[in-house]
Computed example of a mutant assay.
Amino acid sequence: MRVAVVTESFLPTVNGVTNSVCKVLDFLADSGHEAILIAPAARNTPTSYRGFAVHAVPAVAYRQFPVGLPHPQVQRVLAAFGPDVLHAASPFLLGAQAIAAANRIGVPSVAIFQTDVAGYAKRNHLGKAAALAWRFVRWIHEAADLTLVPSSSSERDLVAAGVTRLARWGRGVDTERYHPRLRTHPDAVDLRARLAPNGEVVLGYVGRVAPEKQLERFDQLRGIDGISLALVGDGPSTASVGRLLRGMPVTWLGRMGGQALAVAYASFDVFVHTGTEETFGQTIQEAHAAGLPVVAPRAGGPVDLVHDGGDGYLFDPDALTGDSSMRTLVEDLVVSRDLRLRMGESGRRAVRATTWNSVCTELLGHYAHVIAARQPVPVVEAV
């Protein structure tokens, strides 16, 4: 199969879109398929990935991210490559142009929805502009042959916006890299000694430090005895969140990846996710794979990933006190090591079969579906 992948984010930018695109390209390379990638240009953008050509198009910077702009190069590249299918990762301006170009040359397209438009609009008080944003989303995704959504909340949002031709597609997790056995790795033991010198319960977070991640919620944990916060990631809110959490036992670990990130998970006791705008929640799956209980808001992607009371807790994002608040549920886990271990094991079991290989094999099925749907129906003449 020949697959053209167009993405709104790629290396060296690291985020959920980039990570999933890399996993898809890895799978295509390992499975013997052919592919190209079209991505926004940034400093140090690679010219190839896993043997696939990377075509960088002009971009402008927005909030530390390059945003790809429509460019005549897109249709030329697609026409020259002659793909069987177009994969549009979190399509915006660049993805919208690529889907339109694919339609002009008769190539079916699969769009991957990964942006919580409703949450962004609410947080930024966009009001009537939110309706315009959803119209733009509907225009982009209705042009695609199929839109893949990562969660039930995303599906509801898109159905309400009038988007049709939807299917669910989650994300895989590397259950070998993220594994409870790493807790005894010397690097994890050393890091834990640094994070919890007096035997504190380590509450970990992994992700961007940005407004939509709502790390300000960690202030609700102020005053809980015997805890240590470990925050992995960086971003535009680092300074403001640091000021808010001043006086709390916080260790900033910065951006991590690969083995270092796996070691960080292994040094945690509990994983705490704070944002309500996640369309999926890949770090939750990584935490489960590492054998950690998860505390996350009852909103967005986490609702599908956390079995409340089984492998973690879902808190009411509007509750500051009471049994459903983030603070109360974290306290339950802080005081009970047995509960942490039991929930962590349940989480590990829940994701054990959710490999990238199985998820990407499912993706090939979606590709095959839209390709077949575009094939002309043979006309059988009556004898």
Rank of each mutant, 00 (worst) to 15 (best):
D304R: 08
G300M: 03
R217Y: 07
L253T: 07
E345W: 11
V60F: 15
T7C: 14
D187L: 14
S346N: 14
A39E: 00
K23M: 05
A35F: 06
T47C: 11
L215N: 11
E278C: 05
G172H: 11
R194C: 06
A111E: 09
E278W: 08
R352L: 13
S48H: 01
P46Y: 05
F271C: 04
V232D: 01
D26G: 04
A350V: 04
V294R: 01
T283L: 09
E331A: 14
W139D: 14
Y367A: 02
F136R: 05
I105S: 03
W169M: 13
S336L: 00
T164A: 15
E345P: 04
L305M: 02
H179F: 00
A299Y: 04
E8N: 11
R255K: 12
H125M: 07
F268R: 01
V334E: 05
I371H: 10
Y367C: 09
R349W: 10
N198Y: 09
T283P: 12
A118W: 07
T238D: 12
P197G: 03
V24L: 13
N124K: 10
R243A: 15
V67L: 15
V206Q: 01
I99Q: 08
G233Y: 00
F136D: 04
V202Y: 03
F268A: 01
L245G: 00
G257Y: 10
P91T: 05
L244P: 01
L364C: 06
A129E: 08
S151K: 02
G172P: 11
D225L: 08
V379A: 15
E176F: 13
V67G: 13
G119C: 04
G233N: 09
C360T: 06
S240L: 06
G226C: 01
A102P: 00
V117I: 12
Y367G: 08
G258N: 02
W252L: 01
C360M: 14
L320R: 10
T361H: 15
A266T: 06
